[in-house]
């Protein structure tokens, strides 16, 4: 299996990476190798194998609904590139959140 330059350009855009033409060439060839390596698995017959939801054979890990201390605002903001002491500051975003 090989990846097209378009595939890689799309993945790059989704990851918000600005790839130059040269980088796109390199990535296309390197990613194709990785995908090719993994696609060896396609040779296996998995019809009778249950899909794996998680590699660990553990389930039902919960915590109780008990509050724990939060960080101070100063601690929370300290690694942010920019803040005003209360909020994280980011370049103007317009429109609705894509979330939920």
């Amino acid at each position: 299996m090989t990846l097209s330059r378009q595939d890689v350009a799309k993945v790059g855009m989704l990851a918000k990476l600005a790839l130059s033409d040269a980088e796109l060439d390199t990535m296309t060839s390197e990613l194709s190798k990785i995908v090719g390596f993994v696609s060896l698995l396609d040779e296996l017959d998995t019809t009778s194998v249950e899909p794996l939801a998680h590699p660990l054979d553990t389930q039902n890990v919960f915590r109780d609904d008990v509050p724990a201390p939060s960080l101070s605002t100063a601690e929370a903001l300290q690694s942010a590139p920019r803040h005003d002491g209360q909020y994280f500051l980011v370049p103007a975003v317009l429109g609705e959140s894509g979330a939920a």
Partner: peptide
């Protein structure tokens, strides 16, 4: 709930900004 889905930060509405946050 009293706390968030994946951590123990409070879910109370109306707190000052970025006071109910953790790693």
């Amino acid at each position: 709930t009293r706390t968030k889905l994946f951590c123990g930060c409070s879910t109370a509405f109306g707190a000052p900004p970025n006071t109910q946050v953790c790693p």
